[in-house]
Design a protein around this nucleic acid. Structure first.
Lengths: 254, 254
DNA sequence: CCCGTGAAGTTGTATATACAGGCTAGTACA
DNA sequence: TGTACTAGCCTGTATATACAACTTCACGGG
């Protein structure tokens, strides 16, 4: 039934486990190849493969002569494309604030139940909040969270910690699916985001999985005039160990 | 100046070269590890690393007992997220057609020159075409291509082969950057896409690099009511060799 | 005090070797 | 004829060994 995993994969799992449990923090030193040889009774080539693949996958950074260190690149959002609005704003050096409009226990129905793969009537927490960048509304977050996944969700102060950050802290989110649309919003959304009549919205609809099942479903409305999504694609094989120049956009955005 | 690349990387480059030159077609057999040992005078472990990494990066598929074969997964779009509208429509089983509205040689100025990193006045080919799915307009492609990169661009019949496919055939596009916006378009765009007054557009602005320099800059307008972008994110390390279930969205789109 | 030098530890690469396990084709046998 | 088996090739993993290059740090000479 349960195939024995290869030795190098066991090593990877062990280290990933230490990272996601918090035992190893970003920038912490990971055991060197020789230390793994001693403590785990493997050959250096096996330890090398484990650490090299963790490097390729972005979990750690390796520097010849110095050692292997937990990467903090990954911790901010786990997946580059699926980021937290607060971090995104902070990255631009601006001030983030958010206002909780609704935070209530509800029964899932219709689209929400379908998206979360649960029966109609299952308990979900409904969150509605407006995120602002330097005081200007930039995202209306309309989110449903499986109550069984995040029991503390009703008490949490989401003005201080965003739902995204809170959910990530409970359990690493492992998979995400999103749809991006453009539409002219209804009055309610217009009011929340303080946008003109007839202005377009960029809508991101996102489902996120943890432990193999969907746990949260969010509709994110953004004012078309104040928000855009950016992405940068490089072919795999472009070594992660070389200096990461993730810069070079920005000028098109102005 | 030019650091000697490691042996395994030379092997990878060699095989990638054979694939992108067309010498090796999808599903063709790639030299086995032992054949590389003989012909390239390397150890089997080195050949193994080269082929294993090509597998991880999606260039080839390996089957224990049978051999290594060129993957066709990669050839359709090189980067999953940066796809060709014609392929995308074909994937849905619908009919794609396109109409060329403009195909002319121009001098780059302003935003275009800036985006392509060239002097004002450099020759660029300007393309404007409307793509339709089952006869319904779904994308207005407003593209500028560096004339020096694609000399045949003015003669090409883009109603038959999309610019994206044509450019990919000239040289593999290696890097892409895109910005996604929502906006209400002007009259001209409205007319091309046959959309209602006041309806939103999903706008994708994309720059693509080849051989280290930007070669094409495109603004893609889509009717908000008839088009959406979808994305699916899985953490790296989710082995590529296991059966790829890229399915599982679709139901949210209805 | 400063600088160079070298030792020790680290990653990066390359090789030879070994065994396990999957796949295929051909052969021997019933 | 058909079936079972096996030889041969393939990938997948694991180990021991070796050398190169980089980083840090301590030590010693100027």
């Amino acid at each position: 039934m349960n195939q024995a995993k290869p030795r190098y994969q066991q090593l990877k799992d062990l280290i990933i486990g230490r990272i996601s449990s918090g035992e190893l923090q970003p920038a912490d030193r990971v055991p060197s190849e020789n230390e793994l040889v001693e403590s785990m009774s493997v050959s250096r080539m096996t330890a090398n493969r484990a650490l090299r693949e963790l490097n390729d996958e972005g979990y750690v950074d390796r520097v010849a002569g110095r050692g292997t260190f937990v990467s903090d690149y990954r911790s901010q959002s786990h997946l580059l494309e699926v980021h937290n609005i607060a971090d995104e704003i902070a990255l631009r050096g601006h001030a983030h604030s958010s206002q909780v409009m609704r935070q209530s226990l509800q029964h899932a129905r219709g689209e929400v139940a379908k998206a979360l793969h649960v029966e109609q009537g299952t308990d979900v927490v409904h969150l509605l909040l407006v995120h602002a960048e330097n005081g200007v509304p930039i995202q209306l977050e309309d989110r449903h969270v499986l109550a069984s996944f995040a029991p503390g969700c009703l008490q949490q102060d989401f003005a201080a910690v965003t739902p995204s950050a809170y959910l990530t802290s409970i359990s690493p989110l492992q998979e995400a699916e999103q749809v991006v649309r453009a539409s002219v919003p209804n009055r309610a959304v217009q009011k929340y985001l303080d946008i003109e009549d007839g202005e377009a919205c960029l809508v991101v609809i996102r489902r996120t999985w943890s432990a193999g099942r969907p746990v949260t479903f969010a509709r994110l409305h953004h004012p078309g005039s104040r928000y855009e999504l950016t992405g940068h694609y490089t072919p795999p094989g472009t070594s992660r160990s070389t200096s990461s120049d993730v810069v070079q956009l920005e000028e098109l955005r102005q």
